[in-house]
């Protein structure tokens, strides 16, 4: 509820000028946020309530290691699920757009540390190229993401 200052509360006339100054200052501050302020808040709230599923890119034909690592990253990032994304399609049961819950993958990634030795460099490159929470990075795979992963294989 917005309540514009009014004078129903017996404001003495000698204080009207200072009240007007305060009202103007309040208006100045309320209009100060930059463009897109509400949109940024909205996205932050949506992410807090409903974390975006992580989209994990991995090369077709070599799913086990990358899939396990991706699942581990998704778990660490607090993702609720991730979607398998294989740009060119690929063999095996996983197809582009397949969605797996983290719960479905938890047991499978128990031994993910086995794979981290070969993938640490990928993780470092990812962090160097796209610093920030892993969940944000993985949420929007693109050509750079795929390139890093391919180079590391």
């Amino acid at each position: 509820m917005t309540n514009a200052p009014n004078h129903d509360e017996s404001l003495p006339p000698d204080l009207e000028a200072i009240e007007a100054s305060l009202a103007a200052e309040g208006e100045r501050l309320r209009t100060e946020p930059s463009t897109g302020f509400e949109d940024r808040l909205f996205e932050a709230c949506r992410e807090a309530v409903n974390p975006a599923p992580a989209l994990i890119p991995f090369p077709a034909g070599n799913t086990s290691g990358p899939l396990r690592l991706a699942a581990a990253i998704a778990i660490l990032a607090g993702a609720s699920a991730f979607v398998v994304w294989t740009p060119g399609g690929g063999p095996g049961p996983m197809q582009p757009g397949d969605a797996l819950s983290i719960e479905e993958l938890r047991e499978d990634v128990d031994d993910f540390l086995v794979f981290t030795a070969g993938w640490e460099s990928a993780g470092a490159a990812v962090e160097r190229e796209r610093p920030g929470p892993a969940s944000q990075f993985w949420a929007e795979p693109n050509e750079d993401t795929l390139l890093i992963l391919e180079d590391t294989l």
Partner: peptide
């Protein structure tokens, strides 16, 4: 309805606009 009113309240205490936006975001999260 509320984001800019919260921002103004925060901004009245914190002089850096970017910090005030950050705190406002924390409030709504």
């Amino acid at each position: 309805q509320y984001s800019r009113r919260v921002y103004a309240m925060v901004r009245s205490r914190l002089s850096r606009p970017d910090l005030a936006e950050e705190v406002t975001q924390d409030v709504f999260v």
